[in-house]
Amino acid sequence: MNAAIDSPLRTAFGPLRSPAFRRYAAGQLPSITCSWAQVVALSAVVVALDPTALGWVVALQFVPTLVLGPWCGALADRVDRRTLLMAAEAGLGLVAAAYAVAAATGRLTLPVIGVLAAVWGIVNAVDTPARRALTPQLVPPAAAPAAAALSGTLLLLGMTVGAALGGLLVPAFGAAVTFGVNALSFLVDVAVLASLPIGPSPRTPRAPRQIRDGLAHVWRTPELRRPVVVLAAVATATFSYQVSVPVLVPEAGAIGAALAVFTAGSLVGTLVAATRGRPSTRTAAAATGTLAAGQLLVGVAPALALPGLAVAGFGWSMLLMTVVAQLQEAPPDLLGRVMAVFAVVLLGAMTVSGPLAGWLAATWGATTPFLVGAVAAALTAGALAARARTG
């Protein structure tokens, strides 16, 4: 193999040489896959009950991160991250089981969905910083950026397969079976996490101002503040796919296909990001511009929605992996809190973008959220490109 090609590939897949990372990946993939089958099932159920409610259901899943995210990040720095993640995964499995029971007994009403979505969000607020902070512990320090990119690859591979699986399971067996399969997948993940060949994670003793210190560190460090601001601007306007896609194509099979295409594009983008080494402002500008182009294609030509979603997914994942890699360069004793800021910004933006997309679609048509996102992403890409030129 050509050395110029071999080196990026060795960098991208280097984390797989770590037994701990390989085992972690093997446990994550079925859990992510089944979780995204559940996304399709839940979207189809809510759209059938009331399409305008979907944005609020998605928001309920993310509001807890806005409130609890910084505290959960501090928690991930204070306790063993693997133990914390195992508890969170078990909690998510119990929520999935509750969805399955409610659906099987005909009690999956909008109020019940709202309660379960909020509980899911509370547990996920713990899960996200613990997972992001655990990943660098599984590989040598030099391989941490590639491990972040490969983790994103696993996420997107699972999302792609899971969305397609949901599009098949829901029409064939119903939402209850899909929820039940997801609940079982978390048992596998917890067992794999328990078997990881790693020691205890670094712990920061409890002390006053820890949460504020983590937030302050991000804000006073330009290399961390800049990607957080970019992520907030872009995610608020664009990352509403759990709402905008089901509203655009409301049938379960079509939802699964559309989300699978989006995540397949994201998967390619993550693989490309993994081969590019250290992230840069220029990379972020190119990724955001690509996202804008994909959003625009869906907005102006709905018949080309699938290719447009693939392009948007590619750009979105390139941007997200760039942001994650930049933030994971934070000091190890602050990493949990820094990644909690990431979770707060990303999921907080999605808390706004879901209801916003639902309102835009109901008021001006199903393609409007994509057009608004295209404008926001294009403006951000221009600002990033200008900064890259000035150094």
Rank of each mutant, 00 (worst) to 15 (best):
10 R>M: 03
10 R>H: 02
15 P>D: 05
18 S>C: 13
22 R>G: 02
22 R>L: 09
23 R>S: 08
26 A>L: 15
32 I>R: 13
38 Q>S: 14
40 V>H: 14
40 V>Y: 11
43 S>P: 01
45 V>A: 08
48 A>Y: 06
64 P>Q: 06
66 L>M: 05
70 P>F: 09
71 W>C: 03
90 A>W: 03
95 V>T: 11
96 A>D: 08
98 A>W: 04
99 Y>A: 07
100 A>K: 08
101 V>D: 14
102 A>L: 15
102 A>C: 10
104 A>K: 14
119 V>Q: 04
126 V>P: 05
128 T>V: 11
131 R>V: 05
134 L>W: 00
134 L>Q: 10
134 L>I: 01
136 P>T: 07
140 P>A: 02
142 A>T: 02
143 A>N: 03
144 A>H: 01
154 L>A: 15
155 L>F: 12
161 V>G: 12
167 G>E: 11
169 L>F: 04
170 V>I: 03
173 F>W: 12
175 A>H: 03
182 N>L: 01
188 V>T: 14
201 S>A: 14
206 R>H: 07
207 A>F: 03
208 P>I: 07
208 P>Q: 11
212 R>E: 09
220 R>A: 13
223 E>T: 03
233 A>K: 08
237 A>N: 10
241 Y>K: 05
242 Q>D: 15
244 S>M: 07
253 G>N: 05
255 I>K: 08
261 V>A: 14
263 T>P: 04
264 A>E: 00
268 V>T: 07
282 R>I: 02
284 A>C: 04
292 A>L: 08
293 A>C: 11
293 A>V: 07
294 G>L: 01
299 G>E: 00
300 V>F: 03
300 V>E: 07
302 P>G: 11
305 A>G: 06
305 A>N: 00
306 L>S: 10
306 L>R: 11
316 W>V: 09
322 T>M: 01
332 P>R: 04
333 D>K: 07
334 L>I: 03
343 A>K: 12
346 L>N: 13
347 L>F: 15
347 L>P: 08
347 L>E: 06
348 G>R: 01
350 M>E: 06
356 L>G: 12
368 T>L: 15
378 A>G: 06
383 A>F: 08
383 A>G: 09
383 A>N: 07
384 L>I: 12
385 A>V: 03
385 A>I: 03
386 A>K: 05
387 R>N: 00
389 R>T: 06
390 T>F: 00
391 G>I: 07
